[in-house]
């Protein structure tokens, strides 16, 4: 995935079955952001792989005061890249039995 300066990673192991997965997002390179990154911590949230849209979550983060509106695009893209990777891997691996 392209390095946007905003990092998104799995916050839990992906068994390949659950639709909602916990992700963790943090800013590795604040200079890449237009607005100030308020918190400096990692933000953990759950994301529904089937129903939800990365850009909508990014907008919720802006509305929750984590990011400036002008950074919604870069945050949305970072989430989108990670979600795409999760889905790509799932297509290629047989889910482990619970």
């Amino acid at each position: 995935a392209e390095d946007t300066g905003v990092r998104v990673e799995l916050a839990e192991e992906d068994d390949g079955l659950k639709t909602s997965i916990a992700l963790k997002l943090w800013v590795e390179d604040p200079r890449r952001l237009k607005g100030k990154y308020r918190d400096g911590g990692a933000i953990e949230f759950t994301f529904d792989l089937e129903k939800e849209v990365p850009e909508a979550v990014a907008q919720e983060m802006v509305e929750s005061g984590f990011f400036h509106e002008s950074d919604a695009k870069i945050v949305g893209k970072s989430i989108r890249d990670r979600v795409a990777l999760i889905k790509w891997r799932r297509e290629r691996t047989v889910p482990r039995a619970p």
Partner: peptide
């Protein structure tokens, strides 16, 4: 350290915790 939480009006919970140390990019 206690993780801070922000619940968005749409109901999503955002839990803020320290950035994983090992993942910080070495400047």
């Amino acid at each position: 350290s206690s993780a801070a939480q922000v619940v968005h009006s749409a109901g999503r919970r955002f839990i803020v915790s320290p950035v994983p140390e090992s993942r910080l990019r070495e400047q």
